[in-house]
């Protein structure tokens, strides 16, 4: 799915200025635990999370994850947006809860890891 398609189904807003147009998301995982995200072996994935802090960005940077979906109205700070843009990471904010985002994206064809 493209970022535009994802945004549409989760009523999301893209808050970063990156090369999001070329991004194609195939997999997703939902977690607030960065330790868990760091154990994944993944490509073309999005992270759905309720954890909005600078280490969320660092974690996905190390894992080559290019898209973060912040659930349930969590906002990215200016510091997070700046760091994400430097690393070409797209942040989407959504009012939906993690469970709903996961369900909607699963239904739309985004694959799980396990």
């Amino acid at each position: 799915m493209t970022v535009d398609e994802i945004v549409e189904v989760i009523e999301g807003v893209v808050v970063t200025k990156t090369d999001a147009d070329s991004l194609e998301i195939e997999y997703a995982m939902a977690s607030d635990l960065m330790s868990d995200v760091l154990t994944l072996d993944t490509e073309n994935a999005a992270l759905i999370t309720g954890l909005s802090n600078i280490q969320t960005i660092r974690t996905v940077e190390m894992q080559d994850i290019q898209c973060i979906i912040l659930a349930r109205g969590k906002r990215a700070t200016a510091e997070m947006i700046k760091l994400a843009e430097q690393d070409n990471i797209t942040i989407i904010e959504s009012p939906y809860a993690m469970y709903r985002i996961s369900g909607v994206l699963y239904q739309a064809g985004i694959k799980p890891h396990y």
């Binding site: 635990l33 960065m34 330790s35 868990d36 760091l38 154990t39 802090n53 280490q55 974690t59």
Partner: peptide, 15 residues
């Protein structure tokens, strides 16, 4: 609170 401290770090470094 920062999303760590689950006791998975050293094992993941080894992996």
């Amino acid at each position: 609170e920062m999303g760590f401290g689950a006791g998975m770090g050293l094992a993941n470094i080894k992996k």
